[in-house]
Design a protein around this nucleic acid. Structure first.
Lengths: 230, 230
DNA sequence: CTGAAAATATGTACTTGATACACATTAGGA
DNA sequence: TCCTAATGTGTATCAAGTACATATTTTCAG
């Protein structure tokens, strides 16, 4: 047993524990979006021959000089151009055989962005949005990572106003409810949903109404920014 | 940008990404116990000169050939001799400067054990139980890790029967309540506590009573093993 | 112009879980 | 035998979640 906390110096560490530094460390980002009334996730084609044709999450090795949180923000920004968005660590995945090319432990983060309000950086691989529902098999253990993050998201959406990040600036309550239903994977009662959201003061009534709907138009709301009193 | 998922082989990986393998990976275990009516945590004296005299959590580097979960079980077993106990991953901590001897990312786990029902392996350093309440400053970012795990524990104790791991085989309801109060850091109403626990069916009435108490003795309970019907 | 269709908007009863709180009971010790 | 210090239990209240029905508003078809 070689307790890490008894290292005497970085130099001694490198000599005596060489083999311990053979483990690669990465971050993987589960980036959720919403389109076609379905929860989507941003994925790229894996170009590992073991996973030919399969989709994988956006990830990268952590650089020696960056915090792991920084690494996740970097991956998100490189791929979507977005900064300063909600990004939360979910869990580390560290089974020996999870990466066919070597030992790589990954730390999973998840994030939510408005698909129509950003530009993807399509500079390599095939980057695309896929419905979470239809992604049966993914490269590596990425389906498991996705499920873990989705589970975490489900636990959070009534605690924090996360899902507003997936919607355009103005939306009807029905849009919001459909989004919640997509994420939770189950229908919600319209009246109870409205009440539940109402008490949280997450919404601001824009005074506008829906247009071009074939029925009575609903009110349009926007996210109530913290600190702003309506 | 060098996406990890496009590695062609382990050999190529080693050549082209040498610098990415300079990050050390460890696990740290927050091992809770209960004694003197206080929540305790298992710590050792740090022998890093930067943290002379300070306490640190039990941790070790992850070995190249073991899963991270395995690593945490190994650390726990090496220090306490215990196997097959509850051990849950809490969070990864990966700030660049968290370890003075180099870049080490750590994954925190927490566990709960009965202090009086195991033998500590005192083969090195000063290994001891310390009240969580009195540990103001710890080595590394270990106080932060401890707080994170404690927070996670608080969220779990009414969901899962975790705290029974800290108690002897037989205990009175008052003992259990005092333990909950220690963990939560706040007093609980005796009658409401009893009701809340009762509906969960975590307890089995042993039929015995407390002894040597200077008042009316309470019933002694043991943990109701799953599957066992009383 | 009118009525049908399809959605919005809202309120009420019920159930469940959490909280606040009071009184009778039992063993040990003086 | 009484006092002490707990145990053991029940009830009223409040908050949150759930189930459910009716009136209203717009567009579209005729």
């Amino acid at each position: 047993m070689t307790p890490i906390h008894s290292f005497k110096s970085a130099a001694a560490e490198k000599r005596s524990h060489q083999s311990y530094f053979k483990i690669g460390l990465s971050v993987d980002c589960v980036i959720f979006g919403y389109a076609d009334k379905e929860l989507q996730v941003l994925v790229i084609k894996s170009d590992l021959k073991e996973f030919a044709g399969q989709w994988s999450l956006l990830g990268d090795l952590v650089r020696p000089e960056e915090d792991i949180d920084e690494a996740s923000y970097r991956v998100l920004e490189e791929r979507t151009g977005l900064k300063n968005v909600f990004l939360e660590q979910a869990q580390a995945f560290g089974e020996c055989d999870r990466h066919p090319s070597g030992r790589v432990v990954t730390i999973a983060y998840y994030s939510l962005i408005d698909i129509n309000n950003h530009k993807l950086q399509f500079n390599e691989n095939e980057l695309s949005w896929k419905p979470v529902r239809t992604l049966k098999k993914m490269a590596f253990d990425h389906r498991k990572i996705l499920d873990t993050c989705l589970q975490r998201l489900r636990e959070q959406i009534f605690e924090k106003p996360l899902l507003f990040n997936l919607l355009p600036g103005k939306f009807a309550l029905r849009d919001l409810q459909e989004l919640y239903e997509s994420v939770l994977g189950e229908p919600l009662d319209r009246r109870n949903f409205r009440k539940k959201i109402a008490v949280k003061e997450w919404l601001r009534d824009t005074g506008e109404l829906e247009r071009s709907v074939v029925h009575r138009p609903g009110r349009l709301y926007s996210r109530n920014q913290p600190g702003k009193r309506q």
